[in-house]
Design a protein around this nucleic acid. Structure first.
Lengths: 112, 112
DNA sequence: GCGTTATATAATCCTCCTCGGATATAGTCG
DNA sequence: CGACTATATCCGAGGAGGATTATATAACGC
């Protein structure tokens, strides 16, 4: 399951949010999603791990989870291409919008 | 369907990629995904529209699709919170990575 | 007005995957 | 042993995604 699918699931985003406040043992994460059973949360954590979004550290019988840049970097890279698109087309976009406002372009639906 | 789910689908990301090269009429987008039927592509475009990722302009009998910043901004905003996390924890992160390298940690990143 | 082109949408049917529950088990420590 | 977790099954509900087919528009060319 790729990063995008991993992040598409609300419960998983909640887990990431919890980790935004700092690393946490699995137990706390399970407690953070009271609607889900322990195995369910564990499965979500597995997905997040595989997607490179979180990192685990073993501490005695605990597994401490923390955010991990890898997966986020993937999303970042994907988004970056579109960000470049805007910057590359910003002038054209602005020009377009300006023209629409001012002239009431040819292909416009409105007759104002 | 929220932006994250919209973007999670590979075919839809392909459509966005096509639009990265510039705006295109629906017909070309349909042609760009030969594996899918016209209604299927049209449904994907619908999802992208609803998610605010693309914009449509009617031109004669054609519908010209183009990227639209709105939806991307949502992902951007989400990602931003994590980006701030890294900058806030960069020192801790570096320390952590250094420790991993030195110690040769056991729980290395399994890819699948 | 007609026929054609370009699209969207709807309806139906199908397949497959995801998510969750429940339960049991195994491994690792303290 | 008992706490903490991961995993493995098995099961069921639900939805996503696709194919088809058909229909409704809207605009163009004749």
């Amino acid at each position: 399951m790729d990063v995008f699918e991993a992040v598409a699931e609300p419960s998983r985003r909640t887990l990431l949010d919890l980790l935004l406040e700092g690393e946490r043992p699995a137990g706390e994460l399970v407690a953070g999603l009271p609607a889900l059973s322990q195995p369910a949360v564990s499965r979500h954590l597995r997905v997040l791990r595989d997607a490179g979004l979180v990192d685990v550290r073993v501490e005695a019988q605990r597994r401490i989870y923390a955010l991990r840049p890898t997966g986020f970097a993937e999303v970042e890279a994907w988004l970056e291409r579109y960000r470049r698109y805007w910057s590359g087309h910003l002038d054209a976009l602005e020009g377009h919008l300006a023209r629409r406002q001012q002239a009431g372009d040819d292909h416009e639906g409105e007759s104002t």
